[in-house]
Design a protein around this nucleic acid. Structure first.
Lengths: 150, 150
DNA sequence: GTAAGTGCAAAAACTTTGCATAAGT
DNA sequence: ACTTATGCAAAGTTTTTGCACTTAC
């Protein structure tokens, strides 16, 4: 265990030039405990430990964190934005079209070849995000059950 | 030129079991003319030819089309949903983090290897969508200009 | 002490829904 | 004729903003 191991949220907030407050730490801890949470879910979780917190403060905090690269924002089709603390590795997401479940997947290819679009149209590309869409095991099972009973 | 060439919107609507109305055709034509348009932009365009159209009708139409696979919906981070008529090929998108510009890119790899996540967690994966995020040429130029004048 | 963060409240932005009328098949 | 789509209006949900007060630095 050296000083290079996982910096704490306090350290990362300071490094980003953001002040350290109990609300912000509560938000970040809630996201660690429940990845892919929506603003509403983060609010519900943090309200248990910090009762005075408000939903607007959550939105502001999450927005600040995204802007400073402490967390990542996901925009699933047709549902509220979700947030996650895994920002360092380039991992991707499986999303269920039925129930909206989100699961992390590591990049299929070792390095980051997805980082090279065939033609970049003059863009300076920073990241490539891959979203696999389909049906999750639970929803598959439910669909099978419906067919079987018909 | 055979009967297999690009089916018209009228044919595709009928094939999907949807009725053919001037409003729907206006919406689809507007999307053809202006890919990646938001509901608001589609409304502005269609209102020029069909003045009696309303924004709600646009939302309903777009929702119906997405449900029947006639168009695709994109959910860029922090901005309203956008729609496109290119559904057959698996192409991807470049998005500018500064101005929100969206540009189509063909799949980097010939086939569809992006269709295979390293571990599918039991999902039945249907499609893989790749979003390259970065800065578009215009915003890069603007940033350079700011630096130069400082 | 100063700048940044927060609670509170209000509003903006985006999208969906219900019902009577009109239009497509 | 029957069913589906539309206009109109209203509401729902998610997110942003303004201002006074508090807190971290």
């Amino acid at each position: 265990m050296t000083a290079h191991d996982a910096p704490t949220w306090t350290e990362r907030l300071r490094a980003a030039g953001l002040r350290v407050t109990s609300r912000r730490l509560a938000v970040l801890d809630a996201l660690d405990a429940h990845p892919h949470a929506s603003a509403d879910e983060v609010y519900a979780r943090t309200a248990q430990t910090v009762p005075s917190i408000t939903k607007q403060a959550i939105y502001v905090s999450l927005g600040d964190f995204v802007e400073h690269g402490l967390i990542r924002r996901l925009d699933p089709p047709g549902s509220p934005a979700r947030y996650e603390t895994r920002t360092e590795d380039n991992h991707h997401h499986l999303i269920c079209d039925e129930c909206g479940a989100i699961v992390d997947v590591d990049c299929a290819v070792g390095e980051a070849p997805c980082l090279a679009p065939s033609h970049d149209a003059g863009f300076s590309v920073r990241v490539a995000e891959v979203t696999y869409r389909g049906t999750c095991p639970e929803c598959l099972a439910r669909a099978d059950a419906l067919v079987a009973q018909s």
